[in-house]
Design a protein around this nucleic acid. Structure first.
Lengths: 126, 126, 126, 126
DNA sequence: GTGGTCTAGACCACC
DNA sequence: GTGGTCTAGACCACA
């Protein structure tokens, strides 16, 4: 994982984002054990409290769970993960549409531009 | 304008982005005079050199032009501005598709999700 | 290379000119590594920033390219170099015609004088 | 007249060049009175001795002459002026051919490029 | 006042 | 070590 933080969002929220992304994309597998809070916080160069807060948020969302003494693990509940994935996707979509909107593009134009990009990519493939 | 800078892109590049966005979206009108380098740099809280570099980049792109002692102005060439707008849109699209891709969505799924979002928005409108 | 600077053109632009000249004339070979920014700036007796700016301009023109940590290299793209060569030649020609013009020579006279010079040189050869 | 000096040639020589240019191109007319050494040196921002040396050189070339108490005047000898004009032209030509040569262009290519430039200019006229 | 250039020197990421 | 970025502050030409 790469740990770079923007200044426009609390660090703990950025950590949550990153974990969520890794989990729903499968980069972290269901059932996989996470490193300890202490190790993770050192890697990320943040205060252990910050890392702790992020992990608790993920737990609240059901994406990770804790086993008393063994540590934290990625959820094995496919439905929960799928739900998180959808949520992130819709978030990206809203961001995207909002950005295109502020550039002055209508829905129809956006779809048309998406098609163009697809064609370009196909050309690049050939 | 809001001047907050991320750490994952050079400041001068973020300034360029911001101006480009404002120009192609029409928030800055063709022919409009920009504030002086000194004033802008103070507002943004950056060194005058950094602001200068950003503005020169915009000039190279044709989005602004300089009049020796009078200041800098937004280009009045609609074709140049349209070109910049298209370039920014394609950039956003590529970012979006890449993000959706790393979440594990195929092109077809992306289009399908876009439709869902549209419906939701329509419902929200009504 | 000789590093003497006139006062009628920014130093960075004169450095660009000098490199461009060396590259298109083949004095710097395609693929050849340039010295580091620091070394070049010391040799030329200018600030590293000034040298950096010149090299970035050359990069924008495609005449050199950068490899992250290895340094800068002369482009190996013959078409780009040929284009630069033509551009410099046309520039010299325009300067020359303009100078002759302000001396009061017409196009026909210029061509005639060029022939004279050729003959003189031929005589000098024999 | 504009007085900017390069550092690659003695200032007095650059002054000579400038006067020679003005005289042979007719910008200074035959018989015209030059300003005093004192005034000229102040305008140019150089030491009076430097200006004096330049004017003596021009006198040696016959391009100006001195009348004891009335001052210095541009030569009225058309042959002398014509000779100076030719000398300057041949100098420009040699510089030009040398520059093109170091770019790697042969005599034939130079003539061909000159023709191209002529055409471009004609197009620009239309 | 405007933009433009330059120096001096710092810090960063990368390898 | 490499290139890249940024700051601080000076000086210039132009009008």
């Amino acid at each position: 994982m790469e740990w770079k933080f923007r200044s426009d969002l609390p660090i703990y929220a950025q950590i949550v984002e990153q974990f969520r992304q890794s989990i729903v994309s499968g980069k972290l597998s269901p059932g996989q054990r996470l490193e300890s809070v202490r190790d993770l916080s050192m890697e990320a160069g943040v205060n252990p409290n910050t890392m702790q807060r992020a992990l608790q948020e993920l737990e609240r969302e059901g994406l990770v769970y804790t086993q008393r003494t063994a540590g934290r693990f990625v959820s094995e509940d496919a439905a929960v993960i799928e739900r998180g994935k959808r949520a992130m996707a819709m978030e990206k979509i809203r961001e995207f549409l909002s950005a295109m909107n502020s550039l002055g593009y209508s829905r129809e134009e956006i779809l048309s531009l998406l098609s163009e990009e697809k064609e370009e990519e196909n050309n690049a493939d050939s």
